[in-house]
Design a protein around this nucleic acid. Sequence first.
DNA 1: TATTGTTATACTCTATAACTATA
DNA 2: TATAGTTATAGAGTATAACAATA
Lengths: 157, 157
Amino acid sequence: MNMSPDDIQVEDVDLGDLEHSLGFLLRIGQVQIFRAYFRHLGRFDLMPAELSILWVLHLNPDVKQGAVAQSLSIKAAHMTKLIQKLVTGGYVVRTVPEGDRRSVLLSLTDAGYAFVAENADVFINLHKLAPGHLDPDELTDLSRLLRKYIGYEGGAT
Amino acid sequence: MNMSPDDIQVEDVDLGDLEHSLGFLLRIGQVQIFRAYFRHLGRFDLMPAELSILWVLHLNPDVKQGAVAQSLSIKAAHMTKLIQKLVTGGYVVRTVPEGDRRSVLLSLTDAGYAFVAENADVFINLHKLAPGHLDPDELTDLSRLLRKYIGYEGGAT
DNA sequence: TATTGTTATACTCTATAACTATA
DNA sequence: TATAGTTATAGAGTATAACAATA
């Protein structure tokens, strides 16, 4: 018979309305995007969250650590560990500003900027490389609906 | 001044095209759905993954453990722990079938069925209770696009 | 007193490999 | 030999609280 290990008897399992449940669909979508991430950017020792921090720093030099954490929905305690890794890796530098010596400002090293310049486009547009089954217009719609759903009423496109 | 701890200086952080990146939007969407889950169903000691297993079992009595795991993208090793917890909690029973004594069939106890009957609707339709900013038609579109994106070409609605 | 970031702990989920018992 | 499930371990992510330094 020689069935591939991927189609054992899955069709036998009825998911019912779970298949229409946003929570479930978001999770499966994320699993697939993660696979695409590791296929295209897995050779670096950086997780998606870390790459998104580098991206934000390249757009916002000398931004407060807490502001980055909050804008990316990363908890403060976790952020500390991520930044330590990025500093150790030579991508990020920390500065304590004169104005408020409790806080920490983050910015990219030259290596950090070079890394972003080289890999940001693949990272930001992973969904176009993923095995997605949507045409460009549908991708735009999906992105817009998701933005609206989560309350990023930002713009049109 | 009295700023709430939630709007520190977030508007100062420019996310650029990350805001249009599907990976990022899926993650933020999941964070929000999780919050809705714990608001509405957090009083039970069950995680979303566990509730989705109960849901699948109520639709597929005596289904193989591995088939459930695969249909929900749960790894086998993790599935073992989840099922142990659900058995301990009195929601699920395991049966070793005569035909293939390596495998395990899962089904719900009466308490499991009662739990699903009472809470499944809230679980499956969490996105309607979440602070979502979409009207019903947009929610349907979003669900359809996500299903198509992940390759669940199933049906129209 | 309140805020920024750090440390420490615990739990969920994922990934992997080694193991058992069956087939 | 291959398959179904288990056990064990490690890493990533999240949640929480206690803490130090600063405001």
